[in-house]
Design a protein around this nucleic acid. Sequence first.
DNA 1: GTGAAAGCGCTAACAC
DNA 2: GTGTTAGCGCTTTCAC
Lengths: 341, 341
Amino acid sequence: MNKKTTIQDIARELKVTPSTVSRALNDHPRISRDTKEAVQRVATKLNYSPNYVASALRKGTTQLLGLVVPRINRAFFSSVVRGVEEIALNKGYSVIVAQSNEDLNRERDVIKAFLNARVAGIFSSLGKNTTQFDHYLEAQKRGVPIVLFDRTTTAIDASKAVIDDYMGGYMATEHLINQGCQRIVHFTSHQASNIYKERLRGYLDALKDHNIDLDEGLVIPCDLQLEDGIDAVNNVLSKKKYDGIFSTSDYTALGAIKALKAKGKSIPEEVCVIGFSNEPFTEFVEPPLSTVDQFPEDMGKAAAELFFKQIESDSDLSTTYKTMLQPQLIIRKSSNRLDLK
Amino acid sequence: MNKKTTIQDIARELKVTPSTVSRALNDHPRISRDTKEAVQRVATKLNYSPNYVASALRKGTTQLLGLVVPRINRAFFSSVVRGVEEIALNKGYSVIVAQSNEDLNRERDVIKAFLNARVAGIFSSLGKNTTQFDHYLEAQKRGVPIVLFDRTTTAIDASKAVIDDYMGGYMATEHLINQGCQRIVHFTSHQASNIYKERLRGYLDALKDHNIDLDEGLVIPCDLQLEDGIDAVNNVLSKKKYDGIFSTSDYTALGAIKALKAKGKSIPEEVCVIGFSNEPFTEFVEPPLSTVDQFPEDMGKAAAELFFKQIESDSDLSTTYKTMLQPQLIIRKSSNRLDLK
DNA sequence: GTGAAAGCGCTAACAC
DNA sequence: GTGTTAGCGCTTTCAC
């Protein structure tokens, strides 16, 4: 392992000082073109690799972004990471990822590690059990901007990138109504989370706007799993009349479809089904599942842009921004009666 | 933004020197218990957060691992990341992820950025177009261990975590033979990649071991896409006789199924189909698609363990290790004739 | 068991 | 346009 070249080595070779080399490498305006070119040449010749660690220590900040997700190997989150990384790379930043596994203590540890690493910013989608936010406030107190995405909270005054879940819920429900559905089931989830609450609100408002009376028995809490959909159809819903299902989870929607098919119900003729998230599997199942696209990659890009906007604005860091992306209905066979005619 | 506490502050408060504080925090054996406890107490009181950047500069290495994947939002790769991160976190390391987008130049840039960030190690799955390896050799020259996973090459003497693709190909093919298939199609891909080559080799050997003559017309190169499977069935295969398909990609397998169903062929009665990778959608399609599981999360863990083994061994870094995971057949309806009887 | 002192590699006043 | 100087916060060798 050969000794690494530093700006000292370049300086010595060119008989200038390290400061000049540093300035030349950073394209400082007051350095002559000749010097810059000479420095570049020698740097290349000596195979120089700038030491970001030293630079970071001196400048007091790294070019690292810390990103926390519940689990990285979920389609939605991995796409968000993709989006963040794309923007970050362009700006010369790198992205550290860490998983909270929906565990508050682990989330705390991860944030602490990020602070120790002196990341320039923290991106996070809150875990299900995150009901305390001290670790985020601590980060802010230390001057590290927070950007929340998807699962956010009003308890933290931070920049936020979300989709319009309310609108997603509204559009999905209205779509079912337009297909002729009058008794629409809604699979929802824990109301502590902004996203499920908003989708439910969209569902309720769509019903109201179309003069459909709410049957509270058709609003069914579940845990986002495939099995919950099967269960619901076979148990809670077995004696109810319904002609549409709007599920806040694609998995639960698929479970319902499986159970309905097993009962000999035809989809979408007897029951229209629409999910939420546009999980990769939805286009491949039988029948293809209608859903709502959340544009996770765009959400990641938006989140990254909020961060850069925040640090590039000359105001102090307490100014936060918000981006709300519009979701999109993906209409497939599971809810499309009109194409049948 | 309040001034950050340093070990100096702790030292001053306790009337000891920074050296002692540093030692205490790092649990140095020659520091008394009393001192350690006092230091801990004051550190907590002053809300001390160790500056990893300073520590890294001094020690000459960070606790960062650089991880390159073609695209992070692919089920396989995101699971590998999950595995690496799990192990890394336990060891007090963080994981930087970057995407090459299958672009050699971007892969080079990313590796360079990792070196500038002074990562402790680099994990990579090679891009399709990675035919030069200078950037990896450069990293090794600088004393940064490389761990390759999944898509590897013999051109780099590095630690490697892979699955036994040969065995996967063999098992999949043999499974079809056991189902009574005699004329088995194989969708393969670019032979520059170790993984597709090995799976093909497994296919060929399985045929040979079961005394089935190879029909080279049944080995069809494709680009891993769903459309390739549809195309193949409708064109190249339209005049061929075959009763089984082993596809090196789940997507292409699904495409073939779609095309076969459209032609009124029944699966698995007329044609058995098996894919490769156990993509999340495979269990949900109709019929559920048999496939080969690659245990990506385990692969990530194995890769991380190889890295730690390498740096913890007292020998120099040129000793490399290899882990080969065994793949597992996932038999579902698309290739399961025996359950039908 | 603790202190003194040096330095990791870089940047940014301040000087001229 | 370039040099001088100091220091970011930590670790570690050498003392005693």
